[in-house]
Design a protein around this nucleic acid. Structure first.
Lengths: 271, 271
DNA sequence: GAGCGCCGGTAACAAGATCTTCACACGCAA
DNA sequence: TTGCGTGTGAAGATCTTGTTACCGGCGCTC
């Protein structure tokens, strides 16, 4: 699945991927040893790489020594944080002023460590930064769900209708899977960010095109049903509906009835 | 304005709620001033409170000085983090060893600051921690509210009256949502800026036009009620009122939580 | 290694939906 | 009443979305 191994799929791999931009060989050595023992995937970089390259690495976390980057470091930090909002960014650099630390954090960094620092502590900080993101994706249990006429099977990376495969591509499946897990409206940026793993460029229509392909395959496999609804100016919402009329609960857990004359609030799933 | 309205407005305002367990009066004073300016809701605690009490506070973040808690501090920290995985926990305490900091972070703290520290930096760290949590908990924060006869559902970008959608456009919804979150008069410039995201040009009548469209749809879906009131020369104010007479408290939260501490006013005529 | 087909991503166009603007009517305050 | 701020309706401009075609990359087969 080469390219198909998207951020979401990667993270399921359970192996944390970390990049460090730093030039201190001793520091790197210590960190490397420690991380190897923990089974992390470390990428040591001795100078700034393009933001796109970072995107391509599918990282969980990034440690930066601002001193390595020189004058453009703030701007670089800002660009990285803006482009990869889901990435844990830790600045680990030499002596700094309060103002500098404040600036770094405001630009989007998750934590600031001052060198010299103990490797163990840095690792804890990285873990703490990553923790939430991982937790957020845990609920992605490999459990198949059935909504309307279709069955989604994360274990097979495929969806079925009336016993037949929908022949979804990897990306199509990921979008369907994401949409089906929520019955609220998802903005395009949100969808893009969670499927592609980084921020959507302005004017990108990829989500629309994939939604169209999805709709086509869904309609082929399950005629008379509408699954993906457009909310003009906002985004898309998943909800199985028969052409004729009534809608069904969006997920098996939740229940709502559009027919009653009173809106029913679905209890939020409390973890 | 009753206190119900105040409470509602507070929650709806998206104010960040923070508790600090600390006994340093000077520290508290500085922090308090700074946070007040930022519009945060600060709760100063001079000693440990039960975990259940913390749960009841619905905090976004918690700052703890371990020194205040004494011997049981580690266990307390662990219990809090385990019970409230969605809470940003920052330990802010005096001199410490690497081992202590590592321990604190491993127990679930999001960050560790050493006192003495600059209030501004602490705030940035808190913000960074909350930012990460927000990302994971977003879906939860969107609560439906019911005012008068209409129900506003941010998760669907739509409002309903008597079970039927008002068919609001995205922008109409945003304006209604904004207005409904406050029971004071909002100037046009204010509305424009918060919905459009930039300053209103002089002489722009867009807000007026949208208010008109909103009123029309509200009247269609919920006759005999007035929701948006004009304040000549000033702006608009949201308050559900029946034609016949009395007004109602501005907002009632239809919270998904079972243990809502909201006082709920239910109009008798909702069948 | 070349050819082929699949897949992801981009560009372009058309159809709609929505937003802005404008002119005028109306109501409020001095 | 005058002067201004607001309500109203509609036309035109703008923005969004659906849809199709097309291109480059990749893996596969031959």
């Amino acid at each position: 699945m080469g390219n198909a191994a998207t951020a979401a799929a990667q993270r399921a791999n359970n192996r944390l991927r970390l990049a460090v931009i730093d030039r201190d060989p001793g520091f790197m050595q210590v960190l490397s040893n420690r991380l190897e023992a923990l089974g992390w995937d470390l990428r040591a970089l001795s100078s700034a790489v393009t933001v796109d390259a970072l995107v391509g690495m599918r990282l969980n976390a990034l440690v930066i020594d601002l001193a390595v980057l020189g004058p453009g470091s703030w701007e670089y930090l800002e660009r990285v944080c803006a482009r990869l909002p889901g990435l844990a960014v830790i600045v680990c650099t030499g002596p700094s002023s309060v103002a500098q630390r404040v600036r770094g954090l405001r630009l989007g960094a998750d934590a600031w460590m001052s060198k010299p620092c103990h490797a163990e502590e840095l690792i804890c900080v990285i873990e703490a930064s990553i923790r939430r993101h991982r937790r957020a994706e845990m609920p992605q249990l490999e459990q198949s769900t059935t909504v309307g006429e279709i069955t989604i099977r994360p274990d097979l990376y495929q969806a079925y209708a009336r016993g037949a495969s929908l022949e979804l591509t990897a990306r199509e499946f990921e979008i369907l899977n994401l949409l089906s897990q929520s019955d609220r409206v998802l903005r395009r940026e949100e969808i893009y960010e969670r499927v592609w793993g980084y921020a959507m460029a302005h004017g990108d229509r990829s989500v629309d095109v994939f939604v169209r392909k999805l709709r086509q395959k869904l309609r082929t496999g399950s005629p008379n049903w509408n699954y993906i609804h457009t909310h003009f100016g906002v985004g898309y919402r998943f909800a199985p509906e028969m052409d004729g009329g009534e809608s069904l609960p969006a997920t098996q857990i939740a229940s709502a009835d559009a027919e009653s004359d009173q809106i029913v609030f679905q209890p939020a799933l409390v973890a």
